[in-house]
């Protein structure tokens, strides 16, 4: 029994690391920011952490804080052009941002180790810490959802004109969501660095972006359960169905197409909606209308 659990530990670690980035992506989408730059911000955090620990010998907890700050600050700087853009332009700009980070990391060999990346990062992060990080992340996302911030994000995502007409500042809230997402991505980037000894620039490229997007799109973009369900299913799937392991990216690609076309809200959101429908189902709105009496 114990052996069986131990066998799955790497998978659990992977799940927790990816879950954090999935929430970073989920948070911006929830606020109606069309950013695809999560892995770029994760790269910023990972490199900040890796460099501080390896080159400057900083203790890991301090480096982790620095990673959060760097992710948040870079996101803050990015939010200036992003706030002026809409929809598709935000997507393009953030994808370009990933490319900038990638090429800077390869170019600045003295600082980042170039294409070889950084090696010899002391492994200071294990499963227990990742579990704590996961719990804290989920709690924070829950708190945001239930607060005035979550309500403002929901309004902006669904209708900017309505949100603005009710006094919600679109720019301020989207900036906040983006900075929080950047800090979260920074933290998880650093956790990944401290978990795996080494760091290479290509790690934070297109395939990673697609994996993270797949988790959120497949799981669901609105409910808190979305990233959990999406990340769990997509990480477990190749393990359960062995032949799929070699074709992970193919599976993600096909799932992205199928999900967005046939289950556009994702698994969790669709199920939650159905459950709510059943709960209210005894009285459909139309019947409830006529039954109201007064």
């Amino acid at each position: 029994m114990m052996n069986l659990l131990l066998g799955y530990q790497p998978l659990l670690d992977l799940f927790l690391l990816h879950l954090g980035l999935a929430y970073a992506q989920w948070l911006v989408l929830r606020a109606g920011v069309f950013s695809l730059g999560t892995v770029g911000l994760a790269a910023v955090g990972a490199y900040t952490g890796g460099i501080l620990v390896v080159t400057y010998g900083l203790p890991a907890p301090l480096a982790l804080i620095a990673s959060a700050l760097s992710g948040g600050l870079v996101a803050l700087a990015l939010s200036v052009p992003l706030a002026r853009l809409r929809g598709i332009y935000q997507a393009i700009a953030t994808v370009a941002f990933i490319q900038i980070v990638l090429s800077l990391n390869i170019y600045a060999t003295n600082v980042t180790g170039g294409a070889q990346g950084i090696t010899g990062i002391p492994k200071t992060v294990g499963t227990p810490l990742l579990l704590v990080a996961g719990a804290v992340t989920i709690y924070l996302m829950y708190a945001i959802t239930r607060s005035r911030l979550g309500r403002a994000f929901d309004a902006i995502r669904q209708n900017e004109a309505v949100a603005a007409s009710l006094g919600v500042s679109i720019v301020r809230h989207q900036t906040l969501a983006f900075v929080l997402s950047g800090a979260l991505a920074g933290v998880y980037g650093a956790l990944e660095a401290f978990h795996s000894y080494a760091l290479v620039p290509s790690q934070f490229g297109f395939p990673y972006l697609i994996a993270i997007l797949s988790y959120v799109v497949f799981g669901g973009r609105t409910s808190l359960w979305g990233p959990i369900v999406g990340t769990a299913v997509l990480i477990l799937l190749p393990e359960v169905v062995r032949p799929l392991a070699d074709a992970r990216m193919l599976v993600f690609g096909i799932l992205l197409i199928l999900t967005i076309n046939f289950l556009p809200k994702g698994i969790a959101d669709t199920l939650i909606e159905r459950a709510r429908g059943r709960r209210l189902g005894a009285r459909r709105p139309a019947e409830a209308d006529t039954a109201k009496g007064s």
Partner: peptide, 14 residues
């Protein structure tokens, strides 16, 4: 708008 980005990204991957 969003869906097409996701969907075509998937196609590119395939």
């Amino acid at each position: 708008e969003f869906g097409a980005i996701i969907s075509s990204m998937g196609a590119g991957m395939v």
